[in-house]
Design a protein around this nucleic acid. Structure first.
Length: 452
DNA sequence: TCTGGGGTCCTAGGACCC
DNA sequence: TCTGGGGTCCTAGGACCC
């Protein structure tokens, strides 16, 4: 009996070890996600190339494959591409994050209903853990991925691609292959590829496509003759570590099929919150800076309270336009540590506005402003440092906290722009330019589609 | 004329301490 | 002749991601 028990345990341990050593990851993302969201409620766009612009309609951040086929590229300034866009009849849209966030939620909830463990990695991407599912049978895992794609397509209306592999980095690479080569029909499963095919695929892919290899590292690698993913995979691990550090070493292992980056189901709380925006045009007065900081602080505090934290440090940033050569430049990045951590709009806003007044200099044309919060503590511990010595101060803070609570309620019920601090209304000349903005039919009653 | 915004992690170097 | 060594904390800068 005892022996059986021990044997069983060893067996279990072995199975567990085996599973732990060979996890299987899924990566799914929306095809040209922002563009697909725009197409969702505008069927007439489905047959046209579409691009979506960054904030202030600055540059192209998302394009459909039809737009890519015209030679357009991500990151190109709008004004440079304007002629081509017009000539080719490309539909051009401003970013509508409210819409994209809402569609993203639908997409991720749909996927979450089909697999046990999910990591929401970005607005249009998820990782899933398929370890132990479908008996680990590669063909059945591919079929599962196809079912997920079909359901997202049907329920949400967004086209996706998927990759399956023993590491997150490889799963993402497989997804890239699925997008690049239509013959795969939207899913590439590393486990189903022969060794020769894997090598051929890696040999055809530029090393910069790997998750974790940015422009800088790509340049350094290329200077050493490393051009493709295959070249990179064949490098000596110790050399990679010595020359590039532990981060790239991890990526190198992942590319070789060794999982080093775990699935993170619960996103760790943020350690800082930054809100900033470029202005639609440069501003020389202090009022737009104050207004922008007040508006950004409202949103920053909303996020802070969402993760149930209080901030001990509050800061502001504002600067002139660095792209304007010859113009006088001035920039500020200043913060202050509060006596006690807090999460109320009044205290944080007045601290931030104080910093703006203190460091503002006239005679400059400002192009961007923002706020940041850091040094977070749990909201329940926020008032602790004061509690014994300064009852009066604590009373004020507690009252502000109660008021903030009411503000939260109003924002939830009537919308987040219903009540705001007066400074936010000082000026609107800095507001973002979004000339080509679409409606928000999934989050705004007034925009709901009418069938008649 | 015109060039996004919001994050994270790692490393190197300096200050300080024992 | 000869001048320690290790730990911690902080900050700035660099690199990456979408």
């Amino acid at each position: 009996m005892q022996n059986d028990f021990v044997c069983n345990n060893i067996l279990h341990a072995k199975t567990f070890l085996l599973l732990a050593m060979s996890p299987i990851f899924l990566h799914i993302d929306g095809n040209s996600f922002y563009c697909s969201c725009e197409r969702l409620f505008k069927p007439q766009l489905r047959t046209r190339p579409v691009v979506v612009l960054s904030n202030n309609d600055g540059c192209i951040v998302a394009l459909t494959k039809e737009a890519k086929a015209l030679g357009l590229k991500r990151g190109v300034p709008f004004f440079q591409a304007k002629d081509v866009l017009q000539e080719q009849g490309v539909a051009v849209m401003s970013s509508n994050y409210e819409l994209y966030q809402s569609i993203s939620g639908r997409m991720q909830r749909t996927i979450a209903g089909m697999i046990p463990k999910l990591e929401s990695y970005s607005i249009d991407e998820v990782f899933g853990d398929l370890t132990g599912i479908e008996d680990g049978d590669p063909a059945r895992l591919t079929a599962l991925a196809q079912r997920i794609r079909a359901r997202v397509r049907q329920w949400v209306g967004i086209p996706t691609c998927a990759g399956i592999a023993p590491s997150k980095t490889l799963a993402k690479l497989c997804d890239h292959y699925a997008k690049t080569y239509p013959a795969f029909n939207g899913v590439v499963n590393w486990l189903e590829l022969t060794d020769a095919r894997r090598r051929r695929a890696m040999g055809m892919t530029p090393v910069g496509e790997v998750w974790g290899i940015g422009p800088r590292t790509r340049q350094k690698l290329q200077a050493m003759g490393i051009e493709t993913v295959l070249d990179f995979a064949c490098m000596d691990a110790a050399f990679v570590r010595r020359r590039f550090g532990v981060v790239l070493e991890r990526t190198h292992r992942e590319v070789n099929g060794m999982s080093c980056i775990a699935l993170e189901e619960n996103l760790p709380a943020r350690q800082q919150i930054v809100r900033s925006r470029s202005f639609s045009k440069s501003c020389t007065q202090i009022e737009p800076l104050l207004a922008a900081v007040a508006v950004h602080m409202t949103e920053a505090v909303r996020l802070l309270r969402l993760q149930k934290c209080a901030a001990h440090t509050v800061g502001v940033l504002f600067h002139t336009d660095p792209f304007r050569e010859g113009a006088a430049q001035y920039g500020v990045l200043e913060s202050t540590r509060l006596e006690a951590a807090c999460a109320d709009l009044m205290t944080l806003t007045s601290a931030a506005l104080g910093l703006v007044r203190r460091f503002y200099k006239s005679g400059f044309a400002y192009k961007k402003a923002g706020v940041f919060l850091s040094d977070f503590v749990d909201e329940k511990k926020a008032l602790a440092p004061l509690s014994l010595f300064d009852m009066e101060k604590m009373d004020v803070l507690a009252r502000r906290e109660r008021m903030q609570h009411s503000l939260d309620g109003i924002a939830r019920r009537f919308g987040k722009r219903t009540v705001t601090v007066a400074s936010a209304k000082l000026s609107d000349e800095w507001l973002m330019k979004r000339d080509l903005l679409s409606a928000c039919p999934t989050t705004n009653w007034d925009d709901i589609l009418k069938v008649s």
